[in-house]
Amino acid sequence: MPHERSSAGAGPAPVPGGAALLEVDNVTLRFGGVTALDGVSFTIRQGEIFGLIGPNGAGKTTCFNAMTGIYRPTDGEIRFTGKRVTGLRKYEITSMGIARTFQNIRLFPEMTALENVMVGADAHHKTSVLGALFRLPRHRREEAQGREKSLRLLEFVGIRHRAGHVARNLSYGEQRRLEIARALATDPKLLCLDEPAAGFNPAEKEDLLQLIRRVRDTGVTVLLIEHDMRLVMGVTDRIAVLEFGRKIAEGTPAEVRDDPKVIAAYLGVPADAA
Rank of each mutant, 00 (worst) to 15 (best):
P2R: 15
S6F: 13
A8I: 08
G9N: 10
G9K: 02
G9Q: 10
P12A: 10
P12R: 09
P12F: 04
P14K: 06
G17Y: 01
G17I: 11
G18Y: 13
V24T: 05
D25S: 07
N26Y: 13
T28Q: 03
F31D: 00
F31Y: 06
F31I: 00
V34M: 09
G39D: 06
E48W: 01
I49Y: 02
I49W: 01
I49C: 00
N56C: 13
N56Y: 05
T61N: 11
T61R: 09
T62Q: 01
N65G: 03
T68C: 12
I70S: 10
D75P: 12
R79I: 09
F80P: 08
T86Q: 06
R89E: 11
I93N: 04
T94I: 15
M96D: 13
M96P: 12
G97Y: 04
G97D: 10
I105V: 15
L107T: 04
F108C: 13
A113V: 03
A113S: 07
L114H: 11
E115T: 12
V117Q: 02
V119H: 12
G120T: 07
H124I: 13
G131C: 09
R135E: 08
P137K: 06
R138F: 00
H139I: 05
R141A: 00
R141K: 08
Q145H: 01
Q145Y: 00
G146I: 05
R147T: 04
V157I: 07
R162C: 07
A167P: 07
L170P: 05
E174D: 09
Q175L: 10
R176A: 10
L184I: 04
L184W: 05
A185H: 11
P188E: 03
K189D: 11
L191H: 02
D194P: 10
G199V: 08
P202S: 08
L209D: 14
Q210C: 14
I212Y: 06
V215S: 05
R216Q: 05
D217L: 08
T221F: 05
L224R: 05
D228F: 06
R230S: 14
M233Q: 12
M233I: 06
T236K: 01
R238K: 04
L242F: 01
P253W: 08
P253L: 09
P253H: 03
P253G: 04
A254G: 12
V256T: 11
D258M: 13
D258P: 12
I263F: 09
A264I: 13
Y266C: 07
P270R: 09
P270F: 02
P270T: 10
D272H: 14
A273I: 15
A273E: 15
